[in-house]
């Protein structure tokens, strides 16, 4: 015997402990050099696939025009969108614009076969469906880490750094529009980075429409630096910008000068029946009231 059992176990334990500590060390930032280039035709292909197998849509019900949030009665802003169903023909341009604006990754073949795409806007029965930014959002109530929060501006925001990936919010969302990052898109070569303004979401994080929060933030910071009050002027979302029919409107439901507020006058305001009880900020326009 060269060494006793006692010494062997001791030294082996010390070695294991040391290696464990070594493995736990903080590593440098992920390098982007490994990324296989994703091209825009790749993204278009997945959008086409998603549009071929569209999920069914709930029935539309009429609701009143969105007004102040219950949680923030004194706020001057409540940002939202309206999708004009009389103009929309379901072309899918908004989905592509959203993908490019928000660095939305592709999904792998397994997820694609299950019809789980990362697209923040989905077409269901030719109607664009995205997060409705409910004023009384059911997803925010079940988040155990406080990652899903409502801003006083009416945006149902995701703090990705806080998200632990329990997916409770995804389950509690009546329309299941929250998307989970099952794989590390950077590692798998599924990530297309086109907009440095938007952080890339990690594996194990839920993501969804942010109402182009980065655009709202940038515009607000600019306005405040000049010393102006910010009511959402000169901001629009990527999907609204891209819509060839001009069917998507972004604006401030509480600002009488906002285009959204003006256009809502006299129009029929609708939402999905499953969303109606939760005071959505994103609505559909259809016909006249």
């Amino acid at each position: 015997m060269l060494i006793s059992k006692r010494t062997f176990i001791k030294s082996f334990g010390a070695l294991l402990g040391g290696l464990l500590l070594f493995g736990c060390r903080k590593q440098g930032e992920k390098s982007l050099s490994r990324v296989r280039p994703v091209s825009i035709p790749d993204i278009k292909k997945q959008i086409k696939e998603a549009m071929k197998n569209q999920k069914p849509l709930d029935s539309l019900v009429a609701i009143p025009v969105p007004s102040s949030l219950k949680a923030f009665p004194n706020a001057t802003n409540r940002f939202g969108m309206a999708i004009d169903l009389d103009l929309c023909d379901g072309c899918g341009e908004c989905v592509l614009a959203c993908n490019l604006e928000n660095n939305i990754p592709l999904v792998n073949e397994y997820q694609a076969s299950k019809n789980n795409y990362m697209h923040w806007i989905e077409l269901r029965d030719q109607i664009p469906v995205t997060c409705f930014h409910c004023g009384d959002a059911p997803c925010e109530k079940v988040c155990p880490t406080g990652a899903a929060v409502h801003s006083p501006d009416g945006v149902s925001a995701m703090v990705y750094a806080r998200c632990a990936g329990t997916r409770f919010c995804g389950v509690n969302c009546p329309i299941k529009i929250r998307k989970f990052n099952y794989v590390d898109a950077l590692d798998e070569g599924l990530q297309f980075i086109s907009n440095p303004e938007v952080p890339v979401r990690e594996q194990g994080v839920i993501e969804k429409c942010s109402l182009c929060l980065h655009r709202i933030q940038n515009a607000r910071l600019k306005a405040k630096t000049i010393g102006k009050e910010f009511l959402g002027e000169n901001v629009t979302t990527a999907c609204a910008e891209a819509c060839p029919k001009g069917a998507i409107l972004f604006g401030n439901w509480l600002d009488p000068n906002s285009l959204l507020y003006k256009k809502a006058r006299g129009r029929g305001v609708y939402t999905l029946s499953s969303i109606a009880p939760f005071d959505p900020s994103v609505v559909y326009f259809k016909g006249v009231r």
Binding site: L15, G18, F22
Partner: peptide, 18 residues
């Protein structure tokens, strides 16, 4: 001998950390 092994392991771990 025993001490030698311990010392070697210790040096190995230090080397990793450095």
């Amino acid at each position: 001998m025993k001490k030698g092994i311990f010392f070697l392991l210790f040096v190995f771990m230090l080397a990793l950390i450095f």
